[in-house]
Amino acid sequence: MSLGTETRAGWGFVAPALLWTTAFFVAPFLVMAAMSLATLEGRSLVWGLHLDNYARLFSQGYLLRAVAVSLEITVTVTLVSVLLAYPLAWIIAFHVPKRWQRLALLLTILPFWTSYVVRSYAWLLVLAREGVVNDTLLALGLIAEPLTLANTRFATVTGFVHFFVMLLTLTIYANLVQLSPNYARAARDLGASGLQTFRHVILPLTLPGIVTGAFLTFVLCIGDYITPQILGGNNELTVPQVIMVQLGRRADFPLASALSLMLMGIVTLAYLACARWLRLDRL
């Protein structure tokens, strides 16, 4: 067997996918990077190596504000989702009998398959001024006036958390059940209390799964347009919302590109921050 022909045949298999990704992902990305260095003069585009768009990110208050809003929402969503999903995954893994676990998981992620747009809309129904939550609270006499729940950051966070709790429950569950039960047994056997077993053994062993899930949450959350647009209203805008405004209303492609690259920069920083625990290959 000559390595030469082997290699050539291998290239033949890989080439279509490589060409596809290069043509429709890498090249557009490079064009977008170049676009972020261009400027708009009136309605016409001027290519160049300007840093104006990036300077605007820091000089224009509403852009900086959008970055802050996006980060605050994303961090909140990630933390809350992990804190809710971990116990849920734990209960399914250790309290639900084995034969029902698959069903419990399926039930947990079934609403995943409501259309993404529709899911946010459904939360709008739930949280609306006349919606189910206010209706119930009023009927129970817990509140006198309907609460403003929709079109707030609370609504955005709730919509996101709903989505990511499902996702994280799945990844954390997978992590918990693949642990040999003997780890916990060994810890208990050597005198650890339940809490100590969790803190010193189970938590460190599931950390890679948690961090991987949290990173995924971070990436998907910070780049999402639909959920804040439908649920958050226009009181405060996230970065993706600002990007869409630039595209739609003003056709300011250079600024939209710069914002996109900055989003990628934030994701890269998040990646570096948790690279130590990340197991993306395990997804």
Binding site: A17, L18, V26, G223, F253, S260, L263, V267
Partner: peptide, 24 residues
């Protein structure tokens, strides 16, 4: 490197993938 390149689009927001294609 090739595996990394093929996986790369997964790590980028759909919004950015869409925007890049739209520009091109």
């Amino acid at each position: 490197l090739m595996r990394g390149l093929l996986i790369a689009p997964m790590t980028v927001s759909y919004l950015i993938v869409g925007l890049g294609l739209l520009i091109v």
